[in-house]
Each structure stands twice: as structure tokens, then as C-alpha cells.
Design a protein around this nucleic acid. Structure first.
Lengths: 137, 137
DNA sequence: TATTTGCACTTGCAATTTGCAAGTAAAGTT
DNA sequence: AACTTTACTTGCAAATTGCAAGTGCAAATA
């Protein structure tokens, strides 16, 4: 992180994930158990291969994700969220709630966070802990 | 909103504000009482005039902001948040909290939301109501 | 009333970024 | 040994961004 536009926390954050793709990769890691380059490519939005590579590198440089050996094969690379990445959960959650209010969202996606909506704080805490536990391996 | 990449709420949202500038305009409207083209231009990040014009138009098309007559002069245009725009507050708030944790943020900016941190839900509700009240004029 | 200033943009153009399609290299499979 | 899978890289066209310089209307000033 060399020269930032300003010291504003919002601005600094947007310099890291202020684009159309970065948070989708985080979403995939967080909610859909995706963890490889191929997994991310398969997502419905259809990211281009070079863009995906660029975003993964940027997310890694910014310590949102990290690369690990894949247990199945050396040909695969396993990506996973860092603590810093996991802490993006509340942001993604609020985006989800906002979108639910203002877009037509498929029912199954709505239900996915229906419980969490009732007691937000606790739900976020629980999921965060769960994700961070997975990092201890 | 014609053809979206997917029906994912996160993806739909990013198609609206997934860039380096849109949420900064919302920030300026929400927290810094900025309301004119000239106001936004003055912000520390230094947005280019054509980019600002493009973003304002996009935000307006997406009903995040709306144009009004400026009370002082016909030469000025007053921009303000819609309900939909005000409802972005929780997202900006969470981004702020995340940034505080992972960046070095000026003390005065930290203090700005120090109270709000203690009882998040209530703070957000209060500020939201306050902003929506201003719309009734 | 004529002139200058302020405000909200627009325009032209170079530089950067995005996106598509094809290619490469290492690892795993048959 | 040949083929496939996986994770990229590369080349190039198209779109977007960013800078600098206008433009046009409103308002203030001379």
C-alpha cells in the first residue's frame, strides 16, 4: 500500500476491494466453499481468466486471502481467507440485506440469511468464529 | 437495470456501486453535508470532473441520489440521498469499522464513530431516521 | 449595461484497465 | 507416451479512466 488517495477509511477500503470482482471472490470463499482458481471461474458472473488472476494476486498482496498447498494435488492451488478477509463478513452481510430490500432476489438466497437477520450480531459472530476456526489447520 | 451478470445480491449491488468513487460520493452526502458538484470535487481524493459527472448520473439512474433545485441559486444543483441511498449507511459503517481495524486511521475520524460503535444498531437507526427526516422537506 | 466570475458540466485525447480468445507449463491420468 | 486437468500468461481490441481545456448559463461586479 504505497500512496493512497486519502486517509479516509472508506477510500482506503475501496482502493482494495472497490471493483466489480474482488468481493465476489470473497463471497465465493466465504459462503460457497470455493477455494481454487477453477472454482472461481465457474461462478455465474463469468470472470475472465486474466482478471481473476489479477484480482487473486491483489487480494493476496493486501492480505485478504492467502495461497496454500492443495491437499489433493500439487497441480491445484488452495486459496483461503485470512482473518482480515473473514472480517469482511459484516460488510458482505449488509450488502446482502440492502440488495434484498431493493432488488428482486431468488427466494433460496433470501432464506440463506433469514435466520441471521433476526439476531444479526450473534449470527455474524458465530459465522466469523466458524470461519476462523478453519484457519487453525 | 437491464441485463445483470447474475441474480446474486452481492453481484447486483456491485454493479451499482462497485467502483472506486460511487461510495465516496455517498459518504460525502451522508457524513460531510456536501451536496453540490463543486463540493464533491473538493474532496481529498481528487475525482476528475468527467468521472464525477458520470458517477452522479449513474447514481441518479439507480435511484441512490436525486437532483433538486438549490435554494441559493439556479446556477447550483443540489444532490441528495434517496431512501435507497440512505439505506447504504450500514454498509458504509461496516466498511469504516473494518478499515479502522486494518489501517492506520486519523484519530478524529475514529472518534467520529466511537459512540456508534458501542451500540451499533441504535446508532445506525438514529442516523438513518435523521437523514430520512431531512428528505421530508 | 457590460464584464467578469462561479458553477456544472462536456469534449478531446492519452493512458490504463477490462475482456475475450488463444496459448503455455507443470502435474496427474490413461 | 499421449492426453487431460489446472493455473495461469499473452496478445489484442474495446471500454473506462484521467487529465486539461473548453462551453454555456447564472449571478455578482464594475
Amino acid at each position: 500500500m504505497s500512496k493512497m488517495r486519502s486517509e479516509c477509511p472508506i477510500s482506503c477500503s475501496l482502493e482494495i476491494f472497490g471493483d466489480k470482482w474482488s468481493l465476489l471472490i470473497v463471497r465465493d470463499l466465504m459462503f460457497y466453499q470455493k477455494s481454487t482458481y477453477g472454482d472461481f471461474l465457474k461462478s455465474a458472473e463469468g470472470i475472465a481468466t486474466n482478471i481473476l488472476a489479477a484480482r487473486l494476486q491483489a487480494l493476496e498482496e493486501n492480505k485478504i486471502i492467502e495461497k496454500r498447498e492443495h491437499p489433493d494435488s500439487k497441480a491445484k492451488v488452495l486459496y483461503r481467507l485470512t482473518h482480515k478477509g473473514i472480517d469482511l463478513l459484516p460488510i458482505l452481510f449488509e450488502i446482502h440485506l440492502w440488495a434484498e430490500k431493493y432488488f428482486t432476489i431468488p427466494e433460496d438466497l433470501k432464506e440463506m440469511i433469514n435466520d441471521a437477520k433476526k439476531n444479526k450480531e450473534i449470527a455474524i459472530k458465530t459465522i466469523t468464529e466458524q470461519l476462523k476456526k478453519q484457519l487453525e489447520e
